[in-house]
Amino acid sequence: MDKIVKKRIKQVIKGDQDAFGEIVEIYKNSVYQLCYRMLGNRHEAEDIAQEAFLRAYVNIRSFNQDLKFSTWLFRIATNLCIDRMRKKKPDYYLDAEVAGTEGLTMYSQISSDSPLPETEVESLELQETVQKEILKLPEKYRAAIVLKYMKDLSLNEISEILDLPLGTVKTRIHRGREALRQQLRYV
């Protein structure tokens, strides 16, 4: 598939929009999913995912064709999501870091003591619960966790997407997972 993508990219650089349509078809689900997990809103997710493809199209000449296209595309999408998250940050800074902890926020402090109802959770409800908990993660853990649980992404790729050292990526995934564990342990 990488070969097809490379060929399509060359066509796109010549200005062929149909070829770009094929690229969008290949990656639309992953990018949309990435945005939805980060933002938790279908409308916003679609908007940002479209914006990510638009930016990829406009900047396609600056893409280094020796690298993996998906890495580059996911980086654009992740950065757009983080920008959007910062813009709509609530004014009661619940996700401000708690002093003395690296990245643990008020979110993880409040709700860890209020266990989720222990009724039988329908699969869809469970999904919503998990999504909600992901949205409570501070942005740097959220990005790492969302990428970690995308299909087929290795830790190395995540570190390239986030432009962070591998060790930092691991730490963030571990912290994010620990926060999720605390939230989801009673589900």
């Binding site: 995912a49 469970l126 998990v130 997972r177 620990e178 999720l180 564990r181 989801l184």
Partner: peptide, 17 residues
């Protein structure tokens, strides 16, 4: 609990545009 969390998050992964 961690294994359960892992399975939960994996379980919601697939989405369609």
């Amino acid at each position: 609990q961690l294994k359960k969390t892992d399975a939960f998050v994996k379980g919601i992964s697939h989405m369609q545009a």
